[in-house]
Design a protein around this nucleic acid. Sequence first.
DNA 1: TCAGCCGGTTGCGTTTAGCAATCGGTTGTG
DNA 2: CACAACCGATTGCTAAACGCAACCGGCTGA
Lengths: 171, 171
Amino acid sequence: MTSDHIRSGCPINLTLEALGDRWSLIVIRDMMFGNRRHFRELLNNSEEGIASNILADRLKRLTEGGFITRADDPSHKQKAIYSLTEKAIQLVPLLSAMGAWGRRHMPVTKTLSVRAEILEKGGPALWSDFMDELREMHLGEPRPGTGPKASDQMRDAYLAALKEEGGTPRS
Amino acid sequence: MTSDHIRSGCPINLTLEALGDRWSLIVIRDMMFGNRRHFRELLNNSEEGIASNILADRLKRLTEGGFITRADDPSHKQKAIYSLTEKAIQLVPLLSAMGAWGRRHMPVTKTLSVRAEILEKGGPALWSDFMDELREMHLGEPRPGTGPKASDQMRDAYLAALKEEGGTPRS
DNA sequence: TCAGCCGGTTGCGTTTAGCAATCGGTTGTG
DNA sequence: CACAACCGATTGCTAAACGCAACCGGCTGA
């Protein structure tokens, strides 16, 4: 995440050095599952309430680290569009594993964990479909799949859980 | 990892809150793959060079969080034996995913990544065997499996890579 | 014209990371 | 029985990161 000094060449350690803080993966999660692409979207819809200076810092670091790219939004001279890179898209299995573990061992809420449940039960096949969707949305690569979208399954389940609970959608 | 305030009930967020710092998973990794059970083992054999105060703090937090337990070593009045709990053993798929991603996207060293390679290629079946081994070593549950030990495969591959490179084993 | 949105920045106090030296008790060895 | 080495930490310190609130100038749509 921050320092340029490599502690060791262990893959687990290097992953922690790149993403082992309390916000980097939250930002990536929101871009990935909530399809938030603008600074204000990430700031105002944040479930966890990230501060603007922290968000700005993470977007900078994630850009420098090759996890996201920044582009001008043609519709607004001040708007920036952030996109996930292939490097970040390949975090899907890791985020799925985090969700699966958290669902079993932490006090999660129903609404916020139905997407993780689908991702876990869908397994590698669903992850692959979802990653193809992300490549289409963030990298402009046409999606090879023709079946139902993984993101639709997750969104539907999320909205159903939300309706049951009576809240307002975040994405 | 540290604060008692829950930011949100999202499973990914809660996992980050529990383990999202730069040392907690390193300690668990060393206990899990390096079979380090004592304070000094974790301190002196640390590939990344953890400081003693940080280690003491993480052992305390991981104990409070239910990831490890502390017991007296009957062979030495001052020695403590740390053991993984089931909660920590179930992090194997997560650590495997971290290793797999790191191996692809970070500048890992051959020696320190062969174990991650085996864990990745072995897949869920191998994880399950390895988790049974961990339950035997840390929880005293007799191992159901009869085949070759997952840990032996990883150790052999590690020692072979080490020999090729000409280093000294850490575990 | 002007309120509201745009991606941030600044200032400041609190918390955590990290390093080096040290602690008092225990143990194996000569 | 002396003593060095080892045991799990603790202390004091500095640097870095976190977190909050207020604010910035430029842009946009009504």
